[in-house]
Amino acid sequence: MRYILKILIHSLFWVVYVLFYLLMEVMPRGEVFVALQDLTPQFYINFVWAAVIFYTSYYCLIRYFEKSQLVKYLILSITLSVMVSAIFFVFIKFFFSDFNLFDYHIFLPPMVGSFIIAQCGCLVRGFEKWFSNIQVKSEIENKNLKNELELLKSQVNPHFLFNTLNNIDSLIIKSPKDASKMLITLSGMLRYMIYETKTDAVPLQREIDYLTSYIQLQQLRFKNSDYIRFSFPEPDVSNIQVAPMLFIPFVENAFKHSCYAEPMPVIDTSIRLDGNVLEFTCVNYFDTERMLKPDVQSGVGLENVKRRLALLYPGKHDLQIIKKSNTFKIQLIIKL
């Protein structure tokens, strides 16, 4: 806990204590100023007495409470209240000669007050530790969350790179020119992945550019230009921020499982904006027989993006994954 907050808590307690003391001791006497003058020595003694009890309990007794040694804690609280009260009653006797040390009517209320102040010391210390634990827990959770997001992001990038390099390898012999074009496009995409996705959010336009490059790269594999249809917002959406590498796993998955499917377009993806609501849709046809083979796996991409959405947009997104006959549809709505 920060020291400023500690000082504020302790200051507030002592202000309340002083006000309560004055209310109980001064107001019944009627003449406020005369009463204050008469109570000045007694006030200082009582204040020191209360501080000794409070901070003894604050630093010492709290350990027994934390260890759940409640019987020992209660006995020590009472003992502390009796001992400190008795010692300070002796000092009061020097200032007020008519003070009767053996009058239980005088001795009992300060005893009860001492016990209450001791509990207040433990209560304040307990609150401070509780608040500090919350801060530490929050810092640990934030650190773990950041590490988890970095891990999930790092899992997405190699997954994409693995598929793309396989595509390039298949074209090196068949079409060196197309393979070269793929490498140039891939170079630009890797530059974005390595240098621009380290932040928590990127301009939506950069994500659209990245998706466009990816789709163009994939289109080199197909003779039919109608294989994929995509519709993205017009430029000038750079003021909209989104999490990086959020949409590519869906598009990548669509290409992965639609290679042998028909009719055209096999893949249809779009991004639409309506105020601060973004809607991403990706629909693809797939070959049902191929999808039923045991060696065909969905990979880590979709699971990772689900987890990232849960971490980055909790309560602000709706992801629908619908699989019907030979179509697979992704619909993601994010409230930015």
Rank of each mutant, 00 (worst) to 15 (best):
1 M>L: 15
2 R>Y: 09
5 L>I: 12
7 I>W: 15
8 L>C: 13
9 I>T: 03
10 H>A: 03
13 F>G: 04
17 Y>E: 05
19 L>H: 07
22 L>M: 13
25 E>A: 12
28 P>R: 04
30 G>E: 02
33 F>M: 13
37 Q>Y: 09
39 L>W: 02
39 L>D: 04
44 Y>T: 02
46 N>Q: 06
50 A>S: 08
51 A>V: 04
51 A>T: 01
56 T>R: 08
59 Y>V: 02
60 C>L: 15
60 C>D: 10
61 L>K: 04
64 Y>A: 13
64 Y>W: 14
67 K>R: 08
68 S>Q: 15
71 V>Q: 08
71 V>E: 07
76 L>S: 06
76 L>H: 03
78 I>N: 02
81 S>A: 11
85 S>C: 15
86 A>Q: 12
92 I>K: 14
94 F>S: 11
95 F>L: 13
99 F>E: 00
100 N>T: 01
101 L>S: 04
103 D>N: 06
103 D>E: 02
104 Y>L: 14
106 I>T: 12
106 I>C: 08
111 M>A: 04
114 S>Y: 00
116 I>C: 10
118 A>R: 01
123 L>Q: 06
129 K>I: 05
136 V>N: 14
137 K>S: 12
138 S>R: 15
138 S>K: 15
142 N>T: 11
143 K>E: 13
145 L>I: 00
145 L>S: 14
147 N>T: 11
151 L>R: 02
151 L>F: 06
151 L>Q: 04
152 L>H: 07
158 P>Y: 12
159 H>G: 08
159 H>R: 08
160 F>N: 11
161 L>N: 11
165 L>N: 04
171 L>K: 04
180 S>N: 10
185 T>A: 10
186 L>Q: 05
190 L>P: 07
192 Y>M: 01
195 Y>A: 01
197 T>F: 09
197 T>G: 09
214 Y>A: 05
214 Y>V: 02
218 Q>K: 07
218 Q>Y: 01
219 Q>W: 03
220 L>W: 09
221 R>Q: 10
224 N>L: 06
226 D>I: 04
230 F>R: 01
231 S>T: 03
234 E>A: 15
235 P>W: 05
237 V>D: 09
237 V>K: 09
242 V>R: 03
242 V>S: 04
247 F>G: 02
248 I>L: 09
248 I>N: 03
250 F>Y: 02
257 H>K: 09
260 Y>Q: 15
260 Y>C: 13
261 A>G: 05
262 E>T: 08
267 I>S: 13
269 T>M: 11
271 I>L: 07
272 R>V: 11
273 L>A: 10
276 N>W: 00
277 V>D: 10
283 V>W: 12
285 Y>A: 12
286 F>G: 09
286 F>P: 06
290 R>G: 06
292 L>S: 15
293 K>G: 14
293 K>H: 14
294 P>I: 06
295 D>M: 11
295 D>K: 09
298 S>E: 05
299 G>T: 05
299 G>M: 09
306 K>G: 07
314 P>W: 01
318 D>A: 09
319 L>V: 00
324 K>Q: 06
324 K>E: 05
325 S>G: 08
327 T>Q: 15
336 L>N: 11
